[in-house]
């Protein structure tokens, strides 16, 4: 099975994240780049599917040069090779542009199964997997907390507000995974060393037959008109419990008409 796992580099949420004042896009230099957390679950799931069914796992990352750190991490976990979609023309692409670029690349490199995290911690739109399914015209198997492949049949449990849906489809397909689907492995020393020798193919917009008019900031379907740091919340009242903390909290709730 030819599995492609889409991995995004995002700013570390433990550092202060910013937008750039010039073009109002994410400031990727202001914070350390890390693997989007939910994508680690995607890499793990891809590796487990490969271990169970054979085949190959290819990492696909769209991002600037520094995203190669993220690719190395996924390779060190055990993926076989990588494609790095890197081109200045892609800078500032919104979800529509990004999904076009990734879909074109996926068509070019081929796949039986695309796996990705259900959401990124930076943009948090949660729409990319659905958009890929739409653009690639393949089944959308998203928000999975369980994936089972049997020949060309694939079934998932799709997490819902009330529990989950059992969903069935045939390969090729797009799967997005939620946290708790598995426990991502840590790269071993051997894995880290091996990753250095694994092939990483760099593709630009023209190589992947991406329509330049559909990607980049200028072609986005939406724009940030302005932004500002959220005003700090007004300092609250903090009391020490001296046997009456619960009663005092109740007084506060009553003053706000919650009780």
């Amino acid at each position: 099975m030819n599995i492609v796992v889409c991995v995004k580099q995002v700013p570390d949420t433990a550092t202060e994240r910013k937008l750039r004042s010039d073009d109002k896009t994410l400031d990727r230099d202001a914070a350390d780049g890390v693997v989007n957390e939910l994508d680690e679950y995607a890499v793990e799931e891809a590796l487990r599917l490969k271990e169970a069914h054979g085949g190959e796992v290819t990492v696909l990352t769209m991002g600037p040069d520094k995203a190669s750190d993220t690719i190395r991490k996924a390779l060190a976990m055990g993926a076989d090779k990588a494609v790095h979609l890197v081109d200045d023309a892609l800078h500032g692409s919104d979800a529509l542009g990004t999904s076009h670029a990734l879909a074109q690349t996926l068509k070019k490199i081929g796949f039986d199964l695309v796996v990705l995290g259900s959401e990124s911690t930076d943009a948090r739109t949660g729409v990319l997997a659905a958009m890929l399914a739409e653009r690639l015209n393949v089944p959308q198997l998203t928000f999975a907390n369980k994936v089972e492949v049997n020949g060309s049949a694939i079934a998932i449990q799709r997490v819902t507000d009330y529990g989950y849906d059992k969903v069935e489809a045939s390969l090729p397909a797009v799967v997005s995974v939620v946290e708790k689907i598995n426990e991502p492995r840590y790269p071993s020393f051997k894995g880290i060393m091996a990753a250095k020798k694994k092939p990483v193919e760099k593709l630009g917009v023209a190589d992947a037959e991406i329509d330049a008019a559909q990607v980049g900031l200028a072609s986005s379907w939406s724009e940030v008109t302005d932004f500002a740091a959220a005003p700090p919340r007004a300092a609250g009242t903090i009391v020490k419990d001296e046997g009456d903390g619960g009663a005092k909290a109740a007084d506060f709730l009553a003053s706000k008409k919650f009780i």
Binding site: P139, L141, T160, Y164, D165, K166, E168, A169
Partner: peptide, 10 residues
């Protein structure tokens, strides 16, 4: 192409 075959309420 992606058929919901069961809805499980927790």
């Amino acid at each position: 192409t992606a058929k919901v075959v069961d809805r499980v309420k927790e």
